[in-house]
Design a protein around this nucleic acid. Sequence first.
RNA 1: GGCGGCGUAGCCAAGCGGCCCAAGGCGACGGUUUGCAAAACCGUUAUUUCGUGGGUUCGAAUCCCACCGCCGCCUCCA
Length: 491
Amino acid sequence: MSFRLYNTLTRKTEEFQPLEAGRVGMYVCGPTVYGHAHLGHGKSYVSFDILLRYLRYLGYSVSYVQNITDVGHLTDDADAGEDKISKQAQREKKHPMAIAEYYTRSYFEDMDALNCIRPDISPRATGHIPEQIELVQTLLDKGYAYAVNGSVYFDVSKFGAYGKLSGRNVEEMQAGARVDVNAEKRHPADFALWKKAEPGHVMQWNSPWGRGYPGWHLECSVMSMKYLGKTIDIHGGGIENQFPHHECEIAQSEAANGVPFVRYWVHHNMVTVDGQKMGKSLGNFITLKQIFKEGHQRLSRLYNPLAVRQLILQSHYRSPIDFSDAALTAAQSGYDRITEAVLAVRKAMNTALTGQADADVVKQLDTMRQKFETAMNDDLNTAVALSVIFEMLKLANQVVSGKTTQATLNAVNDQFIKLGGEVLGIVKDEYAIAGGGDEQLLEHLIGLMIEQRQTARKKKDFAASDRIRNKLTEFGIVLEDSPAGTTWRRQ
RNA sequence: GGCGGCGUAGCCAAGCGGCCCAAGGCGACGGUUUGCAAAACCGUUAUUUCGUGGGUUCGAAUCCCACCGCCGCCUCCA
């Protein structure tokens, strides 16, 4: 069975067929860097990371481009007001570029923590002003745009296909429009390609139409064209960007190039927190850093970034996901079990027998792999794919608890790495011991306590042995007894 | 006002016409194990049941209609 992907443009799940066999060009709308990344970013980029990883797993050579929007945009109709980056710059008393740089680094840090593979290219909008001006000029030359008083607008009436992605038509949109009417525009649906800079607007550039800045749909068209060509295979983004952002991108790009802009439009759904929409303007958003290390009022504890990733994978990318403390706790528990099982497999390798891999285990693994691939092939059904990882967990624990061979354990571990690691990104190749030297000291000290406790237990002095274990539990160290001896782990 | 989505066990969630008397996770409960625990393993956890009421069909959680409830987009937002 081949890989099938839902295409917003056709509203159907279609067999994925790249333009050029074996190669895929994928563009994903990146963040506007004026604040720390939040849960919504997490869901978005984990979703596309899965798409990227699975395409690579299938053997495609993927070029993955994700922009960094480092020039904040106004609404396309506003005549006054500040852009988001400038606003943040004023607040922090820094240059807008410093703001963009700072939050770009923060963004990558969070995405690394979520185990998202970095894009091959992360083009900045401000680094492509000449190209954007060029595209505006092309649209003017071809008669799709008009210049008014230092600004340039796209003439929607000239592009018949406008609305094909979002299923809207220009006439119906006029009625309920909540945007202010801009007298410069010929039609309310026309959108800005280039805006004249108002006095005091920090981010501005020279153009044939005077000093100004690019319209907010322009950068994606320009940068995807530049790095991936006039027709790209996949364009991803949030469902809220379907209109107007992506609709405008299509209009600009196809009007300029005369060829289809995108073959597969992929949109992921939104995030809610405790059942409510999470929005920057609402102030109820939780940043990833708050979940990972700073804490938040709505959260009872900190969570492992990969547990957050796992929670995201538990539902479909086109479904909304509601983040709550309870949901995160549940995901963390499940994630911990997977991690423990993987570690147990790796640990058991040291003492396992030599010999051939257990044929039955190998067969079961293969069945699970097929189920996994079938699920992923069906528009990235990560919920089912994850359930396969849990089936593997069960199998792994059974294998580890019995007599087994190194080859068997290797087979289990390899599949964990391939499916859980390479594709889903929740199993690591190595679980680094944090802390380095201190960790060794800890190992020795706890080893000593375990020894003391063992002595007490041999003498049946359970009061003493329990005291040691309870005290360590207070410090977040859990002792576990087994026939092979006592081991410890962090809570 | 226009457009779109959702409602499945205590919670999260997959399934989208027969393999469903409905995956998987979390939680809970019982058992094995343990000095007691923890972890792991085994088992139980949706009164033919999938918001409610109709309909189509040999057959529906899955299709159609109505109703109720929730959410998102239409303005920058991932």
